[in-house]
Amino acid sequence: MGPPGLFYVLSKPTHPSLSEQTWNTWYTSEHMRDMVSIGLADLAIRYRNTNPSASWPYLAVYRLPDAAKLQDPAVMGAMAETSDLLPAPWKEVMAMELRAYALVQRFEGQVERPGRARELITVAMEPAEGEDAERDFDEWYRKQHLDMLSMCDGYCRTTRYKKLDDSTPRYIALHEYESTAYPPKEQLKLVTGTEWSKKVIGTAKVFDRDVWEYVSEYSKEGVDQKL
């Protein structure tokens, strides 16, 4: 059995005869449910990029109880390839970027907040080179950054992951907030303005940040709803 993880899928429709509305209907009503029903994921959530000019307008995240199932032909081969809603097999009607991660850390903050957060901020980072820099990167998250973020208005929780392969950026943090009105800019400026924050972020090889709004979700019955 492999580690718990995350399947992270950036996507957009590309087929000329497929409307975005129909593609979204298929993704939400069929594909997400399929990913859960075949036993790959126990929770699937879709988001829309708040930046209308973003290269990837949509994100789907699938929580994996066992990340090794991504390499299991029996599991992956059980996925439906066609739909009455689509003009061709789904892999031919959309562009995708696929990333697979293992769980690093879950952080709930000072006050546990039930329910689904409406905003997701993803921060993909590649720390400066060297074991010392990587250790400092991890300690920054655990000893300062997440504690400070948790004091921002609207903060719900953070989940951190590391890629299963060595492609960069290897690390990603998923920060959940109550709505796209949060966090206030003045509070975020204080969080990222510490000397430790400026050191880690300033020396990072890659720092990619996106803001997403919640679209829909589907989960296996009875499972924890938190990423």
Rank of each mutant, 00 (worst) to 15 (best):
L174V: 09
R135I: 13
R106H: 03
D132S: 15
K189I: 08
E119P: 01
T192P: 00
D147T: 09
G115H: 05
R118W: 00
G130A: 08
M148W: 08
Y101L: 05
K163F: 00
E112F: 01
D153E: 15
Q187R: 11
T159R: 05
G193P: 02
E126A: 12
A95S: 15
K162F: 07
R106C: 01
R135H: 10
Y155L: 06
V191T: 09
Q105D: 13
F107P: 01
Y171Q: 04
H145I: 10
A102Y: 05
T168S: 12
E178A: 13
A102W: 03
T192K: 09
L188D: 08
I172K: 02
Y141F: 12
L98I: 07
P169E: 07
H175R: 06
A128I: 07
T158A: 05
R142M: 02
R160D: 04
V191K: 04
K162Q: 15
A95T: 13
Y101R: 03
H145C: 04
H175I: 10
V111G: 00
E126M: 09
T180L: 01
V93K: 02
V93S: 01
T159I: 15
E178L: 11
Q105P: 01
R135P: 03
V93W: 00
A124Y: 02
K143C: 10
T159Q: 03
A100R: 10
Y177S: 08
V111F: 01
P169A: 08
D132H: 14
T180K: 05
E178G: 02
A95H: 08
R157Y: 03
D153N: 11
L188N: 11
S150C: 11
L164P: 02
V104T: 11
R142L: 05
I121P: 00
K189S: 13
E129L: 10
A100F: 03
R116K: 04
E97F: 02
D165T: 09
E176P: 00
M151N: 13
W140R: 11
L146A: 08
D132L: 15
G193I: 08
A95M: 08
A133R: 14
L190Q: 12
G130F: 03
R99I: 01
K162T: 15
D166P: 05
H175G: 06
E139H: 10
R142W: 00
R118V: 02
Y101H: 07
D138V: 15
Q187E: 15
E186S: 15
Q105N: 14
Q110I: 07
R113D: 03
H175N: 10
